[in-house]
Write a protein that binds this DNA or RNA. Structure first.
Lengths: 217, 217
DNA sequence: TAGTGGCACTTGTATTATACTTGTCTACAC
DNA sequence: GTGTAGACAAGTATAATACAAGTGCCACTA
């Protein structure tokens, strides 16, 4: 807010008319604006468009002309145990392990666990053809993803086509449905030499440290 | 429960109408709610506050009772080159390399580059005492951070107290000032066994794949 | 003991008055 | 022509007030 016209008039020792003319010049440059009965205020600029970059890896690949492929490695209904049971509950689940390729090159190894009662309609061909989120027929309202780094071990190295002990990004994602109920658990492994995460922080982040970082243990 | 509208009216010396308007703003943000004849109360399940978890690593450490320390390894004014010149321009910069410790244990190795004309007032003691963002006297409006994984090499391993070839999270952060101008470049190295990134995606993310992932090269 | 009515309190809503603002106009001085 | 001074209309935000309706509590009663 700016001071009122009459107030400016007294402080600058000029008549209200001249003050007004000056303000109207600024308004023509859309630096300030006024509402009758309210006052003058500095004009807000037309909101810097959020989300400058492509949101999903699929969009990015499509815009780059890269053809995404999926190769199903495992597809099994089983009882949840360990971490899966902790997140989804001690229930029957569908486990799908997939290798994602970009132009024939593997770039992600993904395992998804989904409660069996939500996955009854899914076939092996379904999950090979479409990304998983398109197949869920309940609304997904949010997710939490945790990003860490480890060394690749066992058969994962061969599947991703990298040497044993190469650095990989590991990501666990818990997707929630309405009411904050966890309905999907997925673990992703990315070879570090081909992938990285980009996070835009549109507003002034109150820290220099990378936001979202957490100490474990 | 909150005090009644009339009580707030007297304590804040404002009419009941204005108090009400203020409360209604908070209700729109579903932070509080009211029942007629009952009163105002803080809303349960505050819609998962846009930032459910602690925003910065400093806050997290503080809430855990961990004492953060900083140890300055390098502090030099020099000419920007390579990546730094590309981001900040071919100018004179201040380079600060710091080791961050939590309860005496190293958990981050950070290098910050800052244009010299914005860093003239900074001393080695300053950057040891305070996090960098507190020392900047221009407004920081946003940032982009890129997260990847590599194997730790050279002296970094010794500084972080991990074996050579251990997995680490690498983060580059470009902080912008008004007008989208890059004013800080920082690179962070975190030992993977102690740290991970957590990203909350409050709204339905239109993909199962971890959002923000990007193919490099 | 169970039920009822009254009472003091609350929010919800509407109305009026007031002090302030911009928007617009006319008259005047240099 | 340019700036000043003043008056008035119209819009805004707040204050003050009143009243309806809902809630919790307590005393009283059957």
């Amino acid at each position: 807010m700016l001071p009122s016209e009459s107030e400016l008039s007294t402080t600058f020792d000029a008549s209200r008319v001249t003050i007004r003319k000056a303000l109207e010049v600024l308004r023509d440059e859309s630096l300030v604006d006024a509402r009758q009965g309210f006052g003058w205020y500095v004009a807000t600029d037309p909101i810097r468009q959020p989300l400058g970059r492509l949101a999903t890896i699929e969009e990015q690949m499509a815009s780059d002309g890269i053809k995404p492929e999926r190769q199903i490695l495992e597809f099994a209904f089983e009882r949840a145990k360990g971490r899966v049971a902790k997140v989804l509950g001690n229930i029957q689940v569908l486990r799908v392990k997939r290798l994602n390729l970009a132009d024939g090159e593997p770039f992600a190894l993904v395992t998804v666990w989904c409660p069996a009662n939500l996955a009854e309609h899914l076939s092996r061909a379904d999950v090979e053809r479409s990304p998983f989120y398109e197949l869920m027929n309940i609304p997904l309202t949010g997710a939490t993803q945790t990003i860490g780094a480890t060394l690749v071990e066992g058969e994962d190295a061969a599947l991703l086509g990298v040497p044993l002990g190469s650095p990989v990004l590991r990501c666990e994602r818990i997707t929630e449905s309405e009411g904050g109920k966890a309905v999907l658990l997925s673990q992703h492994v990315f070879p570090a030499h081909r992938t990285e995460f980009v996070v835009d922080l549109p507003h002034a982040a109150p820290s220099m440290a990378p936001s979202g970082l957490r100490l474990v243990e």
